[in-house]
Design a protein around this nucleic acid. Sequence first.
DNA 1: TTAGATGCAAAGACTTTGCGCACTT
DNA 2: AAGTGCGCAAAGTCTTTGCATCTAA
Lengths: 147, 147
Amino acid sequence: MPAPQNTLDEILSAVHGAAKRVTVAKRTVAEVLVATNRHLTADEITSLVQEREPDVSPSTIYRILEEFENLQIVVHAHLGQAAAVYHLTGAVHGHLTCEHCGATMEIPAAHFDALSKDLQKSYGFLLDRHHVAISGTCAHCQPATRA
Amino acid sequence: MPAPQNTLDEILSAVHGAAKRVTVAKRTVAEVLVATNRHLTADEITSLVQEREPDVSPSTIYRILEEFENLQIVVHAHLGQAAAVYHLTGAVHGHLTCEHCGATMEIPAAHFDALSKDLQKSYGFLLDRHHVAISGTCAHCQPATRA
DNA sequence: TTAGATGCAAAGACTTTGCGCACTT
DNA sequence: AAGTGCGCAAAGTCTTTGCATCTAA
């Protein structure tokens, strides 16, 4: 598999290499992703892109994110019931979402190694380390005095 | 915490005990949940309920499921990008969702014990065993001849 | 030149909400 | 009798799609 693309140049090269066109909208989306380098909803990406390029429409953002996913530039995951979040493929990690305050945190995929092996052995199920999203209660939302 | 309600009587008692009314719609939803005893989308529940009580509307199903969640009778989880699934609280289990064929399977929560401890120790994060939904590739969608 | 990319607007899937009547208690 | 719960329909969110136009290569 190709190395993850985490720089602007790498992303645009990948687009170019796939015989896709490098447009202002795509470049701006790529810039936003590289600049923040953490998970963002389509809506957040749209806002950030529109700060620089006000005429880019949400539907274009979705189409670009879809293309970037096909090119393995980004992955998305669904946290809780809310909108999907997107982030660069290079940032391999799982997500923890707090059911109480809605906060999300990213944790290294290594935490899922054991579970991954277990599921593979038990069910032949191949866990996707990019999509892992665990719901629960974060430290802040747990009463200090033990529930 | 109260014992999980998995029989019709227990569910309706819980409703009654909460000073809520026991209606035809609620009884039918409860019957469907008990009869299938696995995860169902709101839409599936609506269809099953309407087979017996055609006049029950989807919005009522959502309201009942919300009430049942508050009463800890059911829990819901979000699998992939699709609709949320609901199941009885008693059926504690995680979900595996195949990104390719969309199939979902339920597995014992015990598989998450180690991960649960790890997350608690590392981040103080309390994993919700009812909500665990893992994305990946199921055995059937993996090429027999090793990818 | 020319085919892919975009903007706009409408549609679609899933879920929530407002309102007045019906039914449970 | 009293007030919760319901059906209906409309609204709300997030995402996708159709189509005419524009633009990167």
